[in-house]
Structures are given as C-alpha cells and as structure tokens.
Design a protein around this nucleic acid. Structure first.
Lengths: 336, 336
DNA sequence: ATTGCGGGTTACAACGTTGTAGAAACCAGG
DNA sequence: CCTGGTTTCTACAACGTTGTAACCCGCAAT
C-alpha cells in the first residue's frame, strides 16, 4: 500500500539513489530521467518515510513547544506565534502540554521527543536550573522567569519594570489603596515574585506604605482564583480602590467578583492585568494590562533555537529581553 | 555525546540485543545481567533513538491533532482533553494549527506527519469529503460538521438539535424578535448552516415568522465579528429582544456591543452562545450556552483512532454523536 | 552417557533513507 | 581517435533499532 524509494526506482528503471536525488532536488539529474522518476512518484503516490530520513540525517525538522496549559489564553496565543515563526524556518511544532508538573516537564525535556525533535522551547514552572542542567543534550530555549541564569538560552520580559509601570499607572489615577492579586510563595511562583517586586517598588516610589493585607495569594492564575481573591479582599474593612492582578485571567475573575459585589470599575475600583490576552479587549469593562510582545517573544525563541541547532551548539547561554508596553483600556483608563 | 545501544552493550559486556531486551522489558534476562545493563544505561544516560525504533517498528507512538486555530478557546479546551485521552493510550499528541486553509489542512493530513504519526484527528474547515478520500493511508478521525458521511471516522454533536433547544429556550423566556449571529454562506460554514437550521426550526415550532434581517453573518467567529454583527443588528428599526450566537466568542463580542449601546442583558436583550468555553462562566453577565461534552468528544475520537490503528483498519467509517446540554446562566437565565 | 528442554544470550538481517566514492557516459579540444 | 573533465548515475554502507533464528549452557529425564 505504501511505497518506498525502491518501488519508485524499479518502476522508473533507475537506481534507488537517483530517485532519492530527484526527491531532494539534486542538480545533476538529466531532465528526462527526472521526468520519468517524477511520473513514477506520482503514480505510486510515493511519500518519503520521515523516520528513515531522520534516522539517516540525525534531524527531524520538528521542534517542541512545551507549555503548562493550553487553555490559558496567554499560552495559546504564544503557541500561535511560535508555530508561525517556526514555519518560516521550515519546522513543524509539536505542542506539548505539561500541566506544570515536574515529571511532565522533565519528560517533555528529555523523554518524549528524544530523537524525535531537534529542539525544545520550554516554559517551565516546576523545573529548576539544576534539573535542567541535568538534561544535557537537547537544544533548548526557556521562556519566562522560572529559571534565572540557567544552562540554556532564555527569553523573558522585564517583569519587575512592567509591574512597576502598571502599578505606577494606578497610582497616577489617584489610587492609594492598591491591592495585588496573584502572589505565590511556592518555587513555581517566580513570575509572581517579580511582579510583586515591581508592585512594591512602585508603591515605595509613590510614598505609599506597603500593606500586606492588600496582597492576595492565588494558588493558580485562573479566573476562579482571581474571583475568589477579589471576594476575599472585599471582606476587609477598608476597600481597595485599585487592584493589580498578576495576569489577565485573574483580572477577569476579579472583574466578575467586583460586578457581583455591585462595585463599579473603574470608578470604585480600578483593575489592571498582565498579558494582554484577547479576552481583555472585549470584557466589560475592557481590561488595562501589560502587553508583552508575544510575537517578538516567539520569534526570539525560535531564532535562538535556530542558532543552537546550526552554528554554535556550545556557545554560552544567551538571555534576551522582549519589549512590553501598557495597554490602557476602560478598567484603568489613561488619565487624560 | 549521545549514546547508542552499542555503547551500553560494550560497557555492560553484553550484546546489543540484550540491552535492547532490557530496555523493552523482555522477561528472560538474568537478574544480574539486567542489573549490569541498567547500571550502564544510567551511567551513560542512554535514551533510545525513537526515529530508529519507529523505522523498525513502523509505529511512532505519536498522533496528531489538527485544528484551525489554537487561540479559539473551544479548540484549546478540546486539545487539552485530547491530550489527556491520548495519554491513557500511551500516545503523544502533536498539535497542529492549520489556520483553516485547504493547503495547510492537506499538509496536516498527508505531508507533515507522514510516517511520523500513526494517526490524525482532524477538525477540517476547508477540506471536503473528496479531498479527504484522496488522502488514503493515514488513519483519520474527523471532528465537526464539515464533512458528512466522509471516508473516515467521525465524531460530532447534534448541532441542529442543540441550536433548536437553545433557541427554544429563548422563546420560552418570552422573546419573539430573536436574532442570530454567525451565519455563513461559504462551504466552510457547515456548522453555521446546521445551527441556522436548528434556529429556524425552533422559530417555526413556536410559530414565529423567520425574519432574514435578524440573521447576521460573521466571516469568522471571533469576538470582533460578534461585536460588529451585534452593532449592525442594533441599527435596525426594531431592536431584537434576544440573540443566539453560533459560538461563545461571537456571544462575548455581542455582549460587549450591547454594553456599549447601553442595553441591559438579559432584560433588554437575552444572549445565548454555543461551546461553553471557560470565559462564558466569568463574563459579565455570565453566558447561557450549549455545552457540548468536549471530554467525551475527545475520548470518542481517540478511541475511534485506536480502533483504526489496532483492529479493523478497513472497517466502514463510523459516525458517533457526542451529547450536549444547555448551560443556562445570566445572559438568558432559566425562567424559574 | 546421551538426549531433550528451555532459559539466557547472541549474530545477523532488515526497516527506508542518504552520504561517499566511484563507475559510466558524455563532451570538447587536440 | 585519444585525453581530460564534467555530468549523470549507481553500488554500498551506514544511521540505531528490533525480529528471527540459532546457539550455548545447565539440568532433568531417559
């Protein structure tokens, strides 16, 4: 049913290698030979066996993107950009969902694709620099904040600066009791720590005293967690007049909780998020947020990986910082 | 740097095949031999080369899931379930984003994974039954409505019934000028046609006359399209008092447009969607919608594929219908 | 002592492809 | 017609793995 080079070769009356040459676009094949071979290929619906080709070449043309959860919109949007950027290099992307667990992440980084993938773009939550160092071999690019100065290339954004800017924006709106949602004490919460740092820095710069009761933890960063945290914050004696959520889904949950509490956004409470996901442009109200340049992040990651794969396999790891900007919408509008 | 069976064999002082046997859990290996081999494996960090194994076995352990767009939440959620269901069978899922274009879909179905994947779960938008019939070879399961009675296994939900039920629910709320958003005349719009049919059926059953001006097309089913369509509907002389959007993202866009127009949901206009995406549980107001059993859809698809791969490769194609239910929330609440 | 048996192990070939090296065919210039 | 160089093609080996068939060995049954 499925044919091999050999079958095509027999049909065209040439050697196996000549067919291979035609398939691979080798220059020095006589026009009529090429035609005969191509005809045979068409007639037999021949398609190369990639496993064999990969075995021979030591390359697969597939890279993996491993993210914690695909139905977190940020990762889905990022995945789209990575797929697009990889396509420009002729790569297929195998998208892998790790669930954020250490075993799954380790598996993604070593087991699954071993010799099935040429490289990996990993957004680690659980794995540490040491874990990763143990996974020699596979060219890898890391995304996000979990691993600092690790053993691999790394693309990130300046979380501290971004959090500081958006918090400062809330300050600029005249808010003083600015809450934060999303803090995490676990080792997985590296992004949370950096964003908290930006938040506290901005408060300090504005001369606002840090109030621990205004900082609500969130075990995960889903809508439900944001809503729960917001409800908790609203039980306090003095209500916050703004809240900076460490990502957009948290913020959407917070919007929901504020709505249920009968509070107006931004009049009573201004809300800001982080990630600039599509939802935030259509929520009610629309969401002010930090907009990381996802397209750039994806492109940088793919290009770092390309570099690893072609040129300097053992070059020292590079760290690149992608730009971000503030996207100011209704939930915490521009002052003007 | 990367080791092969041969290296392990030399280190352990046994034959290559014995190492292979250990790796594959073959029974009849003496305990001490096994121990020596395992030690050597650990020391060398040996990992099997999957390309070679696949070449030898003719199987890859990878199936592909090809969907139009990953950042449509419905597909992202579906992907999560497919990954989970496939994991139970020991498969890795290669997620592929087709963009809904015929070339990309064809490539997904034939080129990309050829001999790299054992099977494909495809959610086609552009390809027709004829296109697919031409793609012999790869075991395939189709999702959705694009291809009816095609050449491959098929998992779908009863779109007509579901659309009829949710429309009937709007009727039950006393609405009479019920609009629809999302109609499409292109061949890609198979889901749209079925949902429109359910809509018109429900109207007919309620004795409400069909009004073409209440049916708004939407080129794609994104939030922006829903908002635009809703704005257009609101320019009519008589306002609709309910709107059935053919998916949830359209509905979220419609909510946004209604909000901007100063209309209350559901008091002035009730809104219903389709898909039951996570967003709709936290939107303001929360979204009434048709909830297809995504988990079941994914499980059925994976099991159909498993059947193709193991047993009856040439059995006649099967069509399975996954259940759905109505999820009634604030935007078109239960009458009680 | 020989045979039979089966557990433990091995050599070899094969999966389908491509790189290497070289053979065969061709061409131009003498 | 030969020479030298290029184009065109081919045979062979190799990539790393596993299935097949066979071998060796110790032990129980003859």
């Amino acid at each position: 049913m499925r044919h091999r080079l050999k079958d095509v070769a027999e049909r065209a009356g040439v050697s196996v290698k000549t067919v291979s040459n035609v398939v691979n676009g080798y220059q020095h094949v006589r026009a009529d030979t090429r035609a005969r071979v191509e005809e045979a290929i068409a007639e037999l619906h021949y398609r190369p066996n990639l496993s064999a080709r990969n075995l021979r070449k030591g390359r697969t043309g597939v890279i993996a993107l491993a993210v914690p959860e695909l139905d977190i919109p940020y990762f889905a949007e990022l995945a789209r950009h990575v797929v697009a950027a990889a396509a420009e290099h002729g790569w297929t992307v195998l998208i892998d969902q790790t669930g954020g667990g250490p075993e799954q992440e380790r598996k993604a980084a070593s087991g699954i694709g071993d010799h099935m993938i040429d490289g990996l773009i990993l957004s680690p939550l659980a794995l540490t620099a040491d874990d990763l160092a143990a996974l020699d071999g596979l060219p890898m690019v890391l995304l996000g904040e979990r691993v600092d100065h690790g053993p691999a290339d790394h693309v990130m954004i300046d979380n501290v600066a971004a959090a500081r800017e958006i918090t400062a924006h809330l300050v600029g709106l005249g808010r003083r009791r600015i809450a934060a949602i999303g803090s995490q004490r676990t080792p997985e919460g590296a992004s949370a720590r950096l964003r908290l740092e930006g938040y506290t820095t901005a408060l300090a710069e504005a001369g606002i005293e840090y109030d621990d009761s205004l900082v609500a933890p969130a075990p995960a960063w889903h809508r439900a967690d944001g809503a729960a945290a917001m409800r908790h914050l609203l039980t306090a004696e003095v209500r916050p007049d703004a809240v900076f959520c460490f990502n957009d889904t948290l913020a959407l949950g917070a919007l929901r909780a504020l709505h249920e509490a009968g509070l107006r956004v931004p009049e009573d409470v201004a809300v800001a998020g982080f990630d600039d996901i599509e939802d935030g442009r259509f929520s009610i109200p629309t969401l002010s947020t930090v907009a990381p340049d996802k397209e750039r992040i994806a492109r940088l990651a793919v290009e770092l990986l390309a570099g690893r794969l072609t040129a300097d396999r053992d070059a020292p790891p590079r760290e690149l910082v992608a730009p971000h900007r503030l996207a100011l919408r209704e939930s915490a509008p521009s002052p003007c």
